[in-house]
């Protein structure tokens, strides 16, 4: 199926902030995140552990568990603000228009219900479909994901191999042809050969269907093979965004540079350097750049204002005080 190229983004996230009000204090997980997910394209969201990637994903689905809460922002999909929708409207949207693929397929699939029944209940929760119609849909999807459809349909998750499980989970996420798929580190529980399989399937789905993919990952090489654009997250904000080639080829932000230097596939001179220091757990409302404590170029201004995610021309954005004055600001990254 060839898709009509539409120019409007599939998803626009503006100034999203999410906090956890735990007993031992507030955790500022996401602090004014801005990005656009281009339609029928893949945006990779990368960053260290604790950067707030999963919380961003769950915020988009409006599935932040207690004691967490989305405190501000806008999440626009087809012009509607998801944060303004009612609980039952959101339920109808999940799975139908907006799906998520989790990290560990064994945990995400119910151990005592067959794959077939889990797919069927997903279909029947959204559409009027007879048992045989739903089964037919499920078999087609499983087959498209290169699984032995009949067998997988009748299997319980524990009867499948790790790679089959993740593909079954992918079938579940894509069964109703959602516009947007969020894949939250979908390959980190798989070994290297299976990672390649899943990535190839995701790419295939992107090419075949009208699917926009938000691909959350630690794996920069995986991001480079699948994604068109990349957003780098640090301390609950996006610090840099741009096309894959630009960002990985000429990173602007000191954090992006440090991140690339720490990865074997991207470090220039062959010497791996881990990002110095450790990722912060943000427990206070902060001012200034979240990366400044680990940044070798930090100056006084970095401690004063949160750097805005500013347009650097050529479809590139970066949030750093040290970069030359941007041409014009279209996004405001303060929180």
């Amino acid at each position: 199926m060839q898709c009509k190229e539409k120019l409007s983004p599939a998803l626009i996230v503006k100034n999203l902030s999410t906090r956890f009000y735990t007993r031992s204090g507030t955790i500022y997980a996401v602090n004014g995140v801005n990005f656009e997910l281009p339609r029928n394209r893949c945006l990779a969201l990368i960053g260290e552990s604790g950067a707030g990637k999963s919380v961003t994903a769950l915020s988009i689905l409006r599935m932040i568990p207690k004691p967490g809460r989305i405190v501000s922002g806008e999440i626009r999909m087809n012009g509607d603000d998801l944060l303004a929708k009612s609980g039952s409207q959101m339920r109808k949207l999940r799975g139908e228009e907006l799906s998520i693929l989790f990290q560990d397929p064994l945990a995400a699939l119910n151990p005592v219900i067959t794959i077939g029944n889990q797919i069927r209940e997903t279909i029947q929760s959204h559409r009027r479909a007879s048992k045989s119609m739903a089964e037919e849909m499920a078999l087609v999807k499983l087959d498209a994901l290169k699984l032995p459809a009949k067998r997988v349909y009748n299997s319980f998750p524990f009867q499948l191999s790790g790679g089959m499980r993740q593909r079954a989970a992918l079938a579940l996420a894509l069964i109703l042809h959602p516009q947007i798929l969020i894949a939250d580190e979908p390959t980190s529980f798989l070994d290297v050969t299976l990672q390649g399989q899943i990535l190839a399937l995701l790419k295939n789905e992107l090419d075949r269907c009208c699917l926009s993919l938000l691909f959350i990952t630690h794996d920069l090489a995986a991001a480079a093979t699948v994604a068109d654009r990349v957003a780098v997250m640090y301390g609950g904000i996006i610090v840099e965004e741009g096309s894959m080639r630009d960002v990985f080829g000429h990173p602007f932000h000191p954090y992006t540079r440090a991140l690339l230097r720490s990865h074997p596939a991207f470090c220039r001179n062959g010497r791996l350097e881990p990002v110095p220091g450790s990722a912060p757990l943000i427990t206070e409302s902060f001012s200034g750049c979240p990366f400044r404590q680990r940044c070798s170029e930090a100056e006084t201004i970095c401690a004063e204002d949160v750097p805005p995610l500013a347009d650097r021309g050529g479809g590139r954005f970066a949030a750093c005080h040290k970069l030359p004055e941007p041409a014009k600001q279209i996004m405001d990254g303060s929180c």
């Binding site: 999940r94 945990a107 209940e121 997903t122 929760s125």
Partner: peptide, 23 residues
């Protein structure tokens, strides 16, 4: 996680409780 995953697929709450959780 599988209860969260079922909700993320928009499975009806009666099924989430009555089938996924109860079983």
């Amino acid at each position: 996680e599988y209860v969260r995953a079922a909700r993320a697929r928009g499975v009806r709450e009666t099924l989430v409780i009555g089938r996924h959780a109860l079983k």
